[in-house]
């Protein structure tokens, strides 16, 4: 056995190991621990759902996330105010009937701002995962499937990406590209593709070497057939798990960036923006930091529960 810094308990299998420090994992290898799952068709889905349902925490997490999605996408109608509406006379009030979460220094409604933050968090995190996944999966798949020099070259690049502390790379990228919603998820996507590439490549390699794939090839199946029939079903599970941990990691990265003044551009709210602005006024007006922190923490917890649930189904354990 060769020593490796990745151990059981790390990788996407370790909830929060990478989340807790506030950025996408640096150096954790998501390809660990994933084995060939059994996945196929609607029947498989239904079976997975039955297994998922047994995990009460995961179901609660899922319910919370669905609620968050609902809020996020109906914020324009559900939120009591617009996130930019200022009302100086009512500045810095604590919770009341008009303003459940109180108001900030310009009299903006904190509840509304928290709601719109959820939307931005979802856009940033899912957007970044999509970008990272699309780039990573494509590169990993091509590299794993064709092998040879291409594979070696790609893996060197991936190694270098892993060597670069990702949070630092994120800061440098945002400095180079300028702040904003678009940059934020592109930058987070760029810093996370290497993990997905490694994951997908590892899955494809292990599938390729399986006897049944060899057999299929011997029987004359084409590449397309092999990919569709054998490889794709096998990598879907691990990818779902990786995504379920990538999304909260994206949210965290965004909020961490906001904390150092490089996140979304105010007045656009994000949990990170709200927390860092609230922190400045924690002494006199603790409600400014309390509510966003609470919602944000709950969201991360919910995603972790769901991720754990998914891992139980698709992981080795």
């Amino acid at each position: 056995m060769s020593p490796s810094t990745t151990t059981p308990g790390q990788g996407p299998g370790a909830p929060g190991a990478d989340l807790a420090s506030g950025f996408p994992a640096a150096g954790s290898d998501p390809s660990d621990e994933m084995s060939v799952p059994q996945y196929g068709g609607m029947a498989g889905l239904r079976r997975d759902w039955r297994r998922f349902r047994r995990n009460k925490l995961a179901v609660a997490g899922l319910a919370y996330i669905l609620f968050l999605f609902f809020i996020a996408f109906t914020a324009d109608w559900v939120a009591p105010y617009h996130y930019e509406t200022t009302n100086p006379p009512a500045a810095l009030e604590s919770s009341s009937v008009q303003h459940w979460f109180g108001t900030d220094e310009l009299g903006r409604d904190m509840l509304s701002r928290v709601m719109y933050s959820a939307r931005n968090a979802i856009v940033v995190s899912f957007g970044s995962v999509l970008i990272g996944l699309a780039v990573g999966a494509f590169i990993g798949a091509v590299s794993g499937f064709y092998g040879g020099i291409l594979d070696i070259a790609v893996m060197r690049v991936v190694d270098i990406m892993f060597a670069f502390p990702q949070f630092l790379l994120l800061i440098i990228l945002v400095t180079a590209m300028g702040r904003g919603l678009g940059t934020m998820f592109v930058a987070i996507g760029i810093t996370s593709w290497a993990g997905y590439a490694r994951l997908v490549r590892g899955q494809i390699l292990s599938a390729k070497n399986n006897d049944y794939v060899e057999a299929a090839r011997c029987l004359g199946s084409g590449n397309g057939h092999i990919i569709r029939k054998y490889i794709l079903p096998n990598i879907v599970g691990p990818i779902i798990v990786a995504v379920s941990f990538g999304v909260p990691a994206g949210m965290l990265a965004e909020s961490a960036m906001s904390l150092i003044g490089m996140g979304l551009r105010p007045p656009m709210p994000s949990w990170g923006n709200l927390i860092s602005a609230g922190m400045m006024q924690m002494y006199g007006f603790p409600h400014l930091v309390l509510w966003p922190s609470l919602t944000f923490g709950l969201t991360l917890l919910a995603f972790t529960f769901v991720g754990d649930g998914l891992r139980e189904i698709y992981g080795k354990e």
């Binding site: 929060g16 807790a20 909020s255 924690m282 930091v289 923490g297 991360l300």
Partner: peptide, 18 residues
Amino acid sequence: SMIGQVIPSFVIAVGLIV
């Protein structure tokens, strides 16, 4: 410990300060 792992360090820091 689940909470400790999931909540980012800067939020914990804020909580500790409060």
